[in-house]
Simulated assay, not measured.
Amino acid sequence: MPIYTDQLNRKVEVTEFPTRIISLVPSQTELLFDLGVGQNVVGITKYCIHPKKNVKKIVKVGGTKDFDIDKIIALNPDLIIANKEENYKEGVEQLEKQFPVWISDINDLKSSFEMISEVGKLVGKQKEAKNLVYKLNQDFKELAKTDSLPERYKVLYFIWKDPFMVAGKDTFIQDILERTNLENSTTSTRYPILDEEKIKELNPQIILLSSEPYPFKEKHIQEFAQMLPNAYIRVVDGELFSWYGSRLNYTIDYLKNLQKDIKLHFSKF
Rank of each mutant, 00 (worst) to 15 (best):
K110L: 03
V133W: 00
T146Q: 12
Y134H: 15
L132I: 01
D105E: 03
N107I: 05
K130P: 05
G124K: 04
F140R: 04
D105S: 09
V133H: 00
V123I: 11
E118W: 01
A144M: 13
F99G: 09
D105F: 04
S117W: 02
L136G: 06
L143N: 14
Q98N: 09
K141W: 13
D139Y: 12
F99N: 10
V101L: 07
N131V: 10
K97D: 10
N137E: 11
F113M: 01
G120N: 08
S112H: 02
W102Q: 08
N137L: 10
G124R: 05
K121M: 03
D147V: 13
K141G: 15
D108E: 04
V133I: 09
I106D: 00
F113V: 00
L109P: 08
N107E: 07
E142W: 12
Q126A: 15
S112W: 01
F140N: 02
S104F: 09
K127P: 11
K121Q: 06
D105P: 06
K121N: 05
K145M: 08
V133R: 02
D105V: 00
K130W: 14
I116R: 11
D105G: 04
S111R: 00
Q98A: 13
D147E: 15
I116E: 01
Q138Y: 12
K110S: 04
K110Y: 05
M115Y: 00
S117D: 09
Q126G: 08
M115K: 03
L143V: 15
V123N: 08
V133N: 00
V119F: 07
L109F: 13
D147M: 08
V101N: 08
N131F: 08
V133P: 04
K97S: 11
L132P: 10
L136H: 12
N131Q: 13
L122A: 03
F99D: 07
